[in-house]
Design a protein around this nucleic acid. Structure first.
Lengths: 237, 237
DNA sequence: CAATATCTGTACGGTAACGTACTTATTGAA
DNA sequence: TTCAATAAGTACGTTACCGTACAGATATTG
């Protein structure tokens, strides 16, 4: 039963619309590394992450890619279709495997035109994602690796159930766009200050308040904007 | 007479809608440094730049701000309203003074609901701006000052009539988020290679092809996406 | 034409990253 | 239980920037 999802976008819907939309979704398990839809291709479906995290990647002509945004349970991959584009401008890749709801493109479009509330919430969600991307862009150019690591861990923790996150320094270095050794140094610093603790692929936040202070303000800006735009998002079914 | 605008969003409209929309706009001259609308305030109007350039700025709690996107004649400031938000998430500030069309919020919303084509084009434009912000964010973290300067100059040249741009290194340093001296160094490099020439606040592109090679691919990615999303945009009335 | 303001060139030491690469610690599978 | 794979710690020279500061060049104004 998909009713009871913890996806923030779907939770922001009133019961009736929520029911209509989730009734058309299917539960899927996304595997880390899977490419959901490639840049330039037609968009087949929209994903509402629950425990999975999906990232938007820009592809350069030499084949390299850069992560431009990542979306967890507070968002969805609907922006393209929502703005009227049938084809992808970027590649959607699963960063962290987990559960998600999948809604085929045609059903998505039908639901969008049948339910004004759905469209309204989707637009607000797009605004939230847009803001996140804006802030992240500014953040990358302004704040150092330690602050950004702190921010990234806080953001990720909001998307995950348990206290422990399974993330390697290597993975984080890709997310932050820095060297693996730079992540190790930043993580050491945070650990020495008692804000996190980690061993071999497992990271745990031990002092959330302190980590927020170590992070740049970008964490709060994005979070507050998301909460303002999608109320009820923490409602959980 | 506003018909005959060179704003790319408005030019992407068919004649009938174009006429309906521009008929509701007023010609304004925007002064560099002016704040059009502040973060948190209600959005009073939407601006379609012609020769002006407006930037979206995120404001931190210490009062400092970071430029997150800038919009010239290929775009508009409509994203907020278009996505259903009556209030600003960011501050819109005039970076380069010049002409623009101004459309009050109520009229904008009325036109949007009366003309499906207008809404469709606006959504495509939002997609384009969204993509620009995504790419720029990735670009800032990946490419060096010289590449980004080249890209910025190319982008700006597309928005301006003449061959000469009135820009100081100091101004450019703010745009790129680097030191003024770093801009001077990058600009010297470009000039020594015959790609640009400049004197005291005036910059001229002398070898466009070469400048494109010196720039990162981000210039082409954003430009191609914008062209694909808003055809006819160069039609000029 | 002189005075002033504005730009640009340059210099200095400092720092946070970089690429590369080797070592040491875990962990899961043979 | 040993081995191979994976993760984390560390090191070294290098680079692109930073903050600051001042001198020279070019406009603008009185």
């Amino acid at each position: 039963m998909v009713y009871g999802t913890n996806n923030g976008v779907l939770c922001a819907l009133g019961p009736k619309t929520h029911y209509a939309v989730t009734g058309q979704c299917e539960d899927v398990t996304l595997k880390a590394g899977a490419v959901l839809q490639r840049s330039g291709e037609a968009t087949h479906a929209v994903y509402f992450p629950e425990t999975a995290v999906v990232s938007a990647i820009a592809t350069y002509s030499d084949g390299s890619g850069i992560e431009m945004a990542n979306m967890g349970r507070e968002a969805s991959t609907a922006v393209n279709l929502l703005l009227g584009q049938s084809h992808q401008l970027h590649t959607d890749e699963v960063q962290i495997g987990g559960a998600a709801l999948r809604l085929p493109a045609e059903r998505f479009l039908k639901l969008k035109s049948d339910h004004a509330e759905f469209e309204r919430v989707l637009l607000a969600s797009a605004q939230s994602v847009f803001y996140q991307v804006m802030i992240s862009g500014a953040c990358n150019g302004t704040h150092d690796a330690r602050q950004r690591l702190a921010r990234w861990l806080l953001t990720m923790a909001d998307r995950i159930d348990g206290a422990e996150m399974r993330l390697t320094h290597d993975f984080l270095s890709e997310m932050l766009g820095v060297r693996r050794a730079t992540v190790t140094k930043a993580a050491q610093d945070l650990q020495e200050n008692g804000l996190i603790s980690y061993t071999r692929g497992r990271i745990r936040i031990t002092n959330r308040k302190g980590l927020r202070e170590a992070s740049c303000e970008c964490y709060d800006l994005v979070r507050n904007a998301n909460r303002a735009l999608l109320p009820n998002a923490g409602r959980n079914g």
